[in-house]
Nucleic acid binder design. Sequence first.
DNA 1: GATTGCCATATTGTCCGGCAATCCGGCAAG
DNA 2: CTTGCCGGATTGCCGGACAATATGGCAATC
Lengths: 243, 243
Amino acid sequence: MTETSPITGLGANIQRQSTTDQAADAVRQAILSGRLLPGTPLREAALAAELAVSRSTVREAARVLASEGLVRYQMNRGIVVTESTAEDVADIYAARAALELAGVDALTEHRDPAVYADLADLVEQIEHAFHRGDTAAVLDGDRLFHATLVAATGSPRLRRFYLQLQQEQRLALALAERSRRELGRTADDHRQLLDALHRSPAQARAELTAHLHAGAAELQQLLDLLAQRKQLAHRAEGETTHG
Amino acid sequence: MTETSPITGLGANIQRQSTTDQAADAVRQAILSGRLLPGTPLREAALAAELAVSRSTVREAARVLASEGLVRYQMNRGIVVTESTAEDVADIYAARAALELAGVDALTEHRDPAVYADLADLVEQIEHAFHRGDTAAVLDGDRLFHATLVAATGSPRLRRFYLQLQQEQRLALALAERSRRELGRTADDHRQLLDALHRSPAQARAELTAHLHAGAAELQQLLDLLAQRKQLAHRAEGETTHG
DNA sequence: GATTGCCATATTGTCCGGCAATCCGGCAAG
DNA sequence: CTTGCCGGATTGCCGGACAATATGGCAATC
């Protein structure tokens, strides 16, 4: 899996990280963790001061994040953390479906036992995490399971694109919390999906699309809830201002 | 298709283009047209002078192009026009297959007559261009045909990603010239593919994969040829230097 | 002759200060 | 309530600057 030098056998390619990349990482982390909410404008000067870097560096980092879809870059209006619409969420799931179905096709065609083993491990992990009540671990396992599926295509480009989709999805629900019931369904779903992957391509495809549709619906619902809560907060704020 | 304002009915959203974007466009154009060959290092200062912009602007533009895969950004080594390996080409076709198959699925499921009409038009265009001997038009039609197929998924993200793949492919064969026979095959293939799309999903999928495999093989062969020619040139250069 | 160490040069990474263009909120006039 | 205007805040872009790093060549060494 890892590259090895033909001479030394050491694949350790040491490499410093540019300030720009570090800045991008910091902001990305803040966004994905929900510390920077969608819609938040990112003032270049303030960010530069906060990160102790120059404005040029911030701008370069912003270009990177923009290409990942985490922020939007509007002419003369600056950087804003991306706000996902309902259509965006639907689209993310549609795109996910396309890539993951390609993964299913590749897997059910080549039947690589290593991939099946990885997937089985992940299902175990997810179930364990669920019983421990470790929400973050469940979600991590979920993401890794699907990423592994796409990786089964063997295509680096599909893999990279898929990771971006996952990032966008994380951004969309950064502040949403899943209920225990939904997490349980997640755990069950993946075992079922794995079974279907063993059985037949057609069943696997069907199971996956069903799983994704359910996920999309759940996320849409969560977003609606958040929007409602936000509206209420907004209204309350208006009242206090008026009173 | 186009967005219309509920008030004026004018969808004309005028918008200036930032200098950075213009710079990126210029370089992108130069790369895709083959004026900047793969492997060419892009000196920031020189580029800035050439485009009559500042180095900061060039760097931002480079970040954009790097995110599109047209250039590579190596720490302390600067910007280099991406050199595609044989694996890259294979991967591009694998990724294309995944997305286009999603398009086939969507199309054969919904049977949107408008899309079929568009595709039929494009086949006509390609055949006309071929008979005119207009190579560029054939290739444009080819690209548009496949992009339309992917667009049938209705997913903006898949569409965007697919355009990037097409860009990368153009980069890979920027300086390769296709023979008349290959262009003819291209024209025939698309009509066959369109027929299969009318017939059955399974046949469409089969036809598409065959088409893409043939394309990949052709491109690989072209690249081998180019590599050989390059080696010969290189060797000749060495001889003159020594002599 | 091949390897190593060193040095001059070219180039990048990053920062800074600056200025015009643009956006935004508010206030006044109609 | 709309329109026009104004000032502060912010961005877009620039040019200069300097340290860190890469690169190619030359000399010293084995």
